[in-house]
Design a protein around this nucleic acid. Sequence first.
DNA 1: TTATATACGGAGGCTTCCTCCGTTTATCAA
DNA 2: TTGATAAACGGAGGAAGCCTCCGTATATAA
Lengths: 198, 198
Amino acid sequence: MGMMAEAEGRKPRADGLRNRERLIDVAKLAFAEIGPNVSLEEIARRAEVGIGTLYRHFPTRDDIIAAVYRREVTQLADAAKRLLETRPAGEALHEWLRLFVDYIATKKVIAPALASMTGGTSALYESSIDLMKGAIADLVEKAIAAGDIRPDVEPFDLVQALGSFAMGVSTSPGWETRTLRLIDILMDGLRSGASGGH
Amino acid sequence: MGMMAEAEGRKPRADGLRNRERLIDVAKLAFAEIGPNVSLEEIARRAEVGIGTLYRHFPTRDDIIAAVYRREVTQLADAAKRLLETRPAGEALHEWLRLFVDYIATKKVIAPALASMTGGTSALYESSIDLMKGAIADLVEKAIAAGDIRPDVEPFDLVQALGSFAMGVSTSPGWETRTLRLIDILMDGLRSGASGGH
DNA sequence: TTATATACGGAGGCTTCCTCCGTTTATCAA
DNA sequence: TTGATAAACGGAGGAAGCCTCCGTATATAA
């Protein structure tokens, strides 16, 4: 129980991996541009691969949607770690919140499809929520420890706030700009009352 | 300005109206059963009309979705009026809240499609929200006046609560039962502290 | 009952979905 | 390097869905 299933066989082919990544890249853009019902042939066309290649990597539409979503979440969690290593915790938090806006955009487009998936996907959702909570908690705790933000912030408060942002986002033009502004204000609020020292 | 555009021409054909209603009935069920991407041919098939008939009544997919949604909202608002006429205000409120659960179910299925519509639909949304607010306010005020529920309830509190229900509903099995239970509890809460008199 | 406006239904052209399989290519062993 | 071969590629093509168009049928009005 709990074994690494990998082992045997040769190294995966470089072109296979390349095309897979390429398809996810292109799919994310296409979903954002055209909507959740882009034809898969369109995605294959943009990625400059045959339709067969797309279907081999992602047997169903849901699979490619899940792949986009999963990568988005993973990148966001990774970004938290990387940001914490390369700059002061307060800045890291601020920067990460901005990245979150891009994540919302992806999620909004994909959500309908995600919602219509059954079983397996709720697990995908769960794990993504856990990843997010972990990332936020880390950022907030370090930022408090560094004296960059007020000490009475519960990480869960931020989860809540971000959730509301994600929900409340309308499709009206300029929501992205407005949300980014909101985040700046939020950061100001967080900073006021910070110890300021190290 | 403000004229009734109707007038001329003969009476609309009975079969036309019948088929139109039939299509909306069937579409609501089909959306719930199969999801927001049911083929329109499937809907026509179930309604036992030709595909051409469906397209004449609803030139686009969005049109039929809007029709289902609009009827749902309208029926809900009408039900409030009817319930208030046929039973004590407290019971009317309780019953109406139960109907609301069915409405959520429809809305959940349709929401993705509604969300992807442009322009015209946000108006549809707005008007539905106003209808809902009006219905709830009426029910709550009359129930308070009748002494069936505590007097310190703001109609808007209920709007808020229902909104949360609608959002928080997961796709997990049994949500409908659970939500109905929540509504019963909510009603108990509303009743406690009621004057009890007339 | 007749005339006709109105509604019906489905054939057919086009797009998308998805499978299948012959061709190409990256990896590994010699 | 060079071959052998597992792995990946790509697109033809059948099935299904989208939507239009128009000949047929029927409800309404005279």
